[in-house]
Design a protein around this nucleic acid. Structure first.
Lengths: 209, 209
DNA sequence: GTCTATACATCGATAGAC
DNA sequence: GTCTATCGATGTATAGAC
């Protein structure tokens, strides 16, 4: 029984890795089966179709995001703190599930056209609403500026955060925590050097390549 | 003779639109031919392969970017001005060539694995170096902060700018010029509201509102 | 320069033996 | 639960008539 589940999980993780690396349509069921170590027909004992495999990978992924975002909102911190926590949570999930993150970011347009991925749409709406709620709360209480539309800020920070999966290596010298700090600092305070009359604390950094 | 070129151009633009919308592997040569109004075999009189069509679309696209970036560098403005000009130039190119922009952003991983797209790699390196040169000049002269790595800032603003192709509609009420202004303001000065008297740390905990 | 016709490979998915 | 064998559809690309 445990072995059955293991085989199922192995199919899921193997498919996720290959689809993330080569793309959904470029990954064949035969290639997945070969990597798992079975014949292609055997996959259909565990899943009804190729799309069903990817659907389960993404559904689990989006559920994990929603669960962690719910914890952020439950903390009831002020908007700037919540925003930082959303960045941290997102980057941690991207580190834990890099393949699912890459698939979701790369195949978004393909998923929209495919039937059977409707459960994904509502999850995506929830996730967007979490970000927008925090951002708009900050605009409302005066901690965020109101001359840049909230939805524009959301889309800019969203792409910057999630697409970091394309270049960031969590196991390298530039840690996920460091990236989260820099993203938060950048999007809240900007890249322009602070004015000289204001005292600035320069934090020490780890060595970088 | 002019008609020949027109037919070739029609194939290029039609293929670009379809590949941008449905993805490279999801777009078949038969579908491109149908949209153009010819039979699939006829495409091979103008191009040696399907990949060659996409390669020409992307090569022209990257050449256009390099040409416009060269003008920005030639102005010899200060780093902050140059950075803004790079943002404006990039968004204008994305508006002029939305299909090529989408293809380049969406199919990057696929292009890396395919042979015959080597000319694209060097162009990409040039473009990256243009951004990094401007950013590092700003760090060197003190106008940009030095506690966030230049390459991190580059990748964050790059993704935010180019991936706006996924959501921004240049013909809508939120213009390309407006987006360029907001992106520049956000990445230089941040989304936090300007402090009224004394700068406040983000980490300052305040009671529930 | 376009069309007709088709070669040839590979795709997702299925049926039935074991 | 896996394998063997294969179906039917679809993919890129080609050959030769017009």
């Amino acid at each position: 029984m445990a072995e059955v589940q293991d085989r199922r999980e192995l199919i899921l993780s193997t498919a996720a890795e290959m689809v993330a690396r080569k793309g959904l349509r470029a990954t064949t069921v035969r290639a997945i089966a070969d990597a798992v170590g079975v014949f292609s027909g055997s996959l259909y004992h565990h899943f009804p179709s190729k799309d069903a495999i990817v659907d389960e990978v993404l559904t689990r992924y989006l559920d994990a995001i929603r669960a962690r975002y719910a914890l952020v909102l439950a903390s009831h911190k002020e908007p700037a703190e919540c925003l930082r926590d959303l960045v941290v949570s997102s980057l941690e999930i991207a580190e834990e599930q890099p393949h699912a993150t890459a698939i979701y970011q790369n195949e978004a347009q393909y998923l929209r056209e495919m039937p059977g991925f409707h459960g994904i749409q509502s999850a995506a709406a929830d996730i967007q609403q979490t970000w927008l709620g925090v951002i708009e709360a900050g605009v409302a209480d005066g901690s965020f500026r109101d001359d840049i539309p909230s939805w524009v800020f959301y889309r800019l920070i969203r792409d910057a955060v999630w697409l970091s999966i394309r270049w960031h290596r969590p196991d390298g010298p530039y840690s996920t925590r460091q990236l989260a700090d820099d993203v938060t600092a950048l999007f809240l305070h900007g890249f322009a050097a602070p004015a000289r009359h204001a005292p600035v604390s320069v934090r020490t950094r780890v060595g970088l390549a």
